[in-house]
Design a protein around this nucleic acid. Structure first.
Lengths: 146, 146
DNA sequence: CAGAATCCACCAGGATACTG
DNA sequence: CAGTATCCTGGTGGATTCTG
């Protein structure tokens, strides 16, 4: 997405070369980011406007959500539609390849839920983890069969 | 794993509280670490000794592999067996819950491979990514049906 | 062979304030 | 409502060296 060209943005390169060998690493790269799976999940649930998404994930800053949404867009997982109006309106949607990720996301979700009590125990035991917030996840419906 | 009690080790706490809401985040936490999925995959392939694993993942330092293996162990995904002999011998194995993660790992692997050409393109385009190593992933056989 | 101890570069992600 | 600009913290993972 690029509406106006704003000259040379401040850019930098990751100094450490990316490991791209097996499919595992490609997938990790796409899902790399604290909120990426949650974002894909939200959009698949038809929660597609930034304000809605932000309400769904109140622990994430708008800035971070924007950053990760942009990465998802650059990786071709989501599409961004900008309605040129006031107040501005933006809607995200999953691309075909983005939809193809949903079974994976669902599997992650299910595995985590299935093992919730065990995982919460071992993760909480870990002295590296300070407080843990257990805010429940509201249930939403997938907007398309996959 | 704890063989000898060595007094109070240097400990610290993560300052930022962990987000544990939906299963997604629990799963992300367990798989959080650059080499975790690859490690689980390797061990499931019966590549279970540190030296073997290190040979399989030459781009990772021994230190990092140790750190992430220890986390997997603390999270109950792998078990570590130490043979008290010289030269020392160590073997890792998946726990039941560790095995239950394998369908997920496989799905990630398959998705990444299925979309390899597309993903390599979009990820390589990203100016944030410097060099990309495309060393192929050797094929190994799963040591147990899941 | 296995791994602990240091040291540190890098960057992801949070806080805050601001524009259109 | 949506997005950008700064600034900053802390934690991940890499390099190196050392032990048994």
């Amino acid at each position: 997405m690029r509406i106006f060209d704003q000259g040379e943005p401040v850019m930098y390169e990751k100094k450490i070369p990316l490991t791209i060998d097996c499919g595992l690493h490609l997938t990790k790269e796409v899902l790399n980011g604290k909120w990426k799976p949650a974002l894909l999940n939200a959009i698949s649930m038809d929660i597609k406007r930034p304000s809605e998404i932000s309400r769904l994930l109140p622990e994430a800053t708008r800035r971070v959500l924007n950053v990760q949404l942009k990465e998802l867009e650059e990786h071709g997982m989501v599409e961004k539609k900008i309605y040129p109006q006031l107040p501005p309106k933006v809607e995200y949607s999953l691309t075909e390849i983005g939809w193809s990720l949903m079974p994976l996301i669902d599997a992650m979700n299910r595995w985590g839920d299935a093992n919730r009590t065990f995982l919460e125990t071992v993760i909480a035991q870990d002295p590296k983890n300070g407080k843990i917030s257990k805010s429940p996840c509201p249930a939403y419906r997938r907007m398309r069969a996959i």
